[in-house]
C-alpha cells in the first residue's frame, strides 16, 4: 500500500495469527479444564473455531504480504 517495506496488512496478519493461536489454544485448554465463567452456547465451542478462523486468516495475510525476501509490490 504505502510503498514501504512492511505493509499494514502484514502487521494485521501477524496480530491475527497470534490472537488466533492464543484463542484456539485456550479453547482447547478449556475443553478439558472447564472455566468457572460459563457463557451461553458454550457447547458450540466458539473459541475453538473462531480462533482457528483468525489463525488461518492471519497466516493468509502474513504469507501474501510477507515483507522479507522477495520485493513485494504494494497492496
Amino acid at each position: 500500500m504505502m510503498n514501504r517495506k512492511i505493509e499494514i496488512w502484514f502487521f494485521i496478519g501477524s496480530l491475527m495469527s497470534i490472537y488466533g493461536l492464543l484463542i484456539f489454544g485456550s479453547g482447547i485448554y478449556y475443553l478439558f479444564v472447564p472455566t468457572t465463567r460459563q457463557v451461553a452456547l458454550s457447547d458450540l465451542h466458539a473459541d475453538i473455531w473462531w480462533g482457528a478462523l483468525l489463525l488461518i486468516l492471519g497466516i493468509v495475510y502474513c504469507v501474501k504480504f510477507w515483507p522479507f525476501g522477495n520485493d513485494k509490490s504494494a497492496a
Binding site: Y19, L22, I23, S26, G27, Y30, T35, R37, V39, A40, L41, S42, A46, D47, W50, G51
Partner: peptide, 12 residues
C-alpha cells in the same frame, strides 16, 4: 459480550 464471549474471546 459477557453472555457470549468466553476466555480469550472476551480479551479480543
Amino acid at each position: 459480550m459477557a453472555r457470549y464471549l468466553g476466555p480469550g474471546l472476551l480479551g479480543l
